[in-house]
Nucleic acid binder design. Structure first.
Lengths: 203, 203
DNA sequence: CTTGCAATGTGGTCGGTGTAAACATACTAT
DNA sequence: ATAGTATGTTTACACCGACCACATTGCAAG
């Protein structure tokens, strides 16, 4: 941290690349990130990144992994202090959408096709699945507590996940703009209420 | 149509470009489509496409517009012969997801960030909104028929759209693979049932 | 402390891309 | 027939991902 570009070796180029990539993600978008530009902005040769990432895709995958970690933390924080399973589901949904809005390009990277699913970047798929398993556990809990209907938890989890992911995607890609009806957090809550209503036991 | 590359002028290059682009979409994916490759495969110079599309983005936008048109047709066909609004909603959802699966790259192009929303390619936004308006009309109909709860139709439409779009996105990007639970049409119907349940009047 | 090896960074290169300008050809309307 | 416009070509620039051979450095074994 003290000395900068004096020495031949950068010292912590891998981390620096990821950090700079996050910046570029916000400014130029995820598809147009260029390894060369990263290297340039870090005052390093254009071939240097390849010492730390075999491929551009691997750099992006590492970025996505960071994103999943962030998302996991955010959702964990949101879950604290929720009493009912329905509340948990809504809280998780809100956290999810907030995250997507706040880090829209990172979100696109995480769930978009840029990083193909067959890219078995171990850390990535592992940390990616955790999010889904968390939803399943909320649902399972709610079912056994009699709060949700008796049904395959995977069905409910898929539904909830799809709903939230759909909301997030449409929001960050600005597809709701056609309705003039600006999509507020209130709108979000109403949409989440619909899915909860569809899952809840109507006792 | 009769003579092919003999003459200096191609004759119908614009349409040929779009057709070839559809092919490339399937084979190389939407992000890696290259105008030069299209031109090459059509036996035409690399600058020729620019006589018909100001920009690569405009070519893709035209492609997306074709996609919206296809989607519109498919959903219209699916709606025929549905009695209740709930049936319509499910039928539209199925058509939507089927379309996404069948034309996954086109779908990504239509709803992804490749074509920014600010790109006011008139024909595109217009035909894109039709799909959403169709959903709203189904919902409105269902509400006034007493089949759905009394609520702002936009809320229900947003929810349904987000759900279906989420299912489609996660499916084509293979994000359900973590559950081993191969996502069949049956799974789809169950997920759609959840959203319908969330909207239906529980009289 | 030396010496050697593995990790890291450099320069240059190859093939590819989008896109623009200047030019050539063909169709169309007068 | 001819002018004008639409279309296609050539050439060029700037950028990119990815690789190679080489330079430099840090570390670890002797």
């Amino acid at each position: 941290m003290s000395n900068s570009q004096q020495s031949y070796h950068h010292g912590d180029l891998k981390r620096a690349l990821l950090a700079e990539a996050r910046n570029h993600l916000k400014t130029v978008g995820p598809e147009k990130i260029s390894l060369r530009a990263l290297a340039r902005d870090l005052g390093v040769s254009q071939a240097a990144p390849y010492r730390h990432f075999t491929d551009k895709t691997h750099l992006l995958a590492a970025l996505a992994a960071e994103g999943f970690s962030l998302l996991h933390d955010a959702s964990k924080k949101a879950l604290a202090g929720c009493d009912t399973s329905a509340q948990r589901l809504v809280a998780a949904g809100r956290a999810y959408v907030s995250f997507a809005r706040q880090h829209s390009d990172l979100y696109r990277l995480m769930f978009g096709p840029t990083i193909p699913a067959d890219c078995n970047y171990e850390a990535l798929t592992e940390v990616g699945n955790r999010a889904f398993l968390a939803i399943i556990s909320i649902v399972t809990e709610g079912i056994s507590a009699g709060e949700f209907r008796e049904e395959d938890p995977i069905v409910f989890a898929n539904s909830a996940w799809a709903m939230v992911h759909g909301l997030a995607s449409l929001l960050i890609d600005d597809r709701f703009s056609c309705t003039e009806h600006e999509f507020t957090m209130d709108e979000l809550d109403k949409a989440l209420a619909v899915i909860v209503e569809g899952i809840r036991a109507n006792a």
